[in-house]
């Protein structure tokens, strides 16, 4: 039991070095100067720790999400690249050979994406590019690749119908289109017509075929080469 009359030695109050330094420049309330419990120090350091931990956790979560997105994007890129390569390989083959006709199937690429993603795939072809896209948690994941050769997303019958309506000739060697060099009327008409996206059904084969459109200026017949992509 303590004696009431006992003199308690005057213990010097310890102040944190940073606080004491600050005291020299800023007027700090006296109760804070004399408070040696360091509650402010503890609260500040723990708050900083909590904030830093939260930032690291959010960054790790985003990194994991990003990795999943990148994996899906890679799968989509591979599929897009493969379709475009098949179209280009037909384009680089000599006309009239067996290599100038190809049937493409999507089955081989179903494993790159989850079955759910695969069902949501939206693949389109225009005269300039192949694009694949699907929605993942409300976000669009896209992949596109430009084509090396002039491409038309039409079947041979559709192409002949279009040409017949516009030029009164179907562009075959028997009925060449009358056009003067540099055949701008034909090429520009086809460029505009092929700008519209043609969506491909992944359950069906894609037919890729090299097709020549014959034009004549009354003295000689020339052929314009195009790749047809259709189902």
């Amino acid at each position: 039991m303590k004696n009431q009359n006992e003199v308690v030695p005057d213990v010097p109050k310890r102040i944190h070095p940073s606080l004491s330094k600050a005291c020299g420049q800023v007027k700090v309330p006296k109760n804070l100067q004399e408070d040696s419990n360091a509650w402010a120090d503890l609260i500040l350091s723990k708050t900083a720790l909590i904030v830093a931990s939260a930032i690291i956790l959010v960054a790790l979560y985003n990194l994991a999400t990003l990795h999943a997105d990148i994996s899906k994007k890679d799968g989509l890129d591979t599929l897009t690249f493969d379709i475009a390569s098949n179209i280009d390989s037909v384009g680089s083959s000599p006309s009239g050979t067996a290599y100038a006709v190809k049937d493409y199937s999507f089955d081989a690429y179903s494993g790159l994406l989850t079955p759910e993603d695969y069902k949501k795939l939206n693949i389109s072809v225009t005269g300039e590019y192949v694009a694949c896209t699907f929605q993942d948690n409300g976000r669009n994941i896209n992949s596109a690749r430009s084509l090396s050769y002039r491409t038309l997303p039409f079947s041979p019958a559709e192409l002949e119908n279009l040409l017949t309506i516009e030029f009164a000739a179907n562009g075959t060697v028997v009925y060449p289109i009358s056009s003067l060099f540099p055949y701008t009327d034909v090429t520009e008409f086809l460029a505009v017509a092929s700008a519209k996206e043609s969506h491909l059904n992944i359950d069906e084969k894609v037919h890729i075929k090299k097709r020549s459109i014959f034009v004549t200026d009354a003295s000689e017949v020339r052929e314009l080469e195009y790749i047809l992509v259709y189902q």
Binding site: S146, S148, Y149, R150, F181, R222
Partner: peptide, 16 residues
């Protein structure tokens, strides 16, 4: 040969 020159590049996409 403007026609030969034109047809040489006509096959390729104008984007390249």
């Amino acid at each position: 040969e403007p026609q030969e020159h034109y047809l040489f590049f006509q096959r390729f996409s104008p984007n390249i």
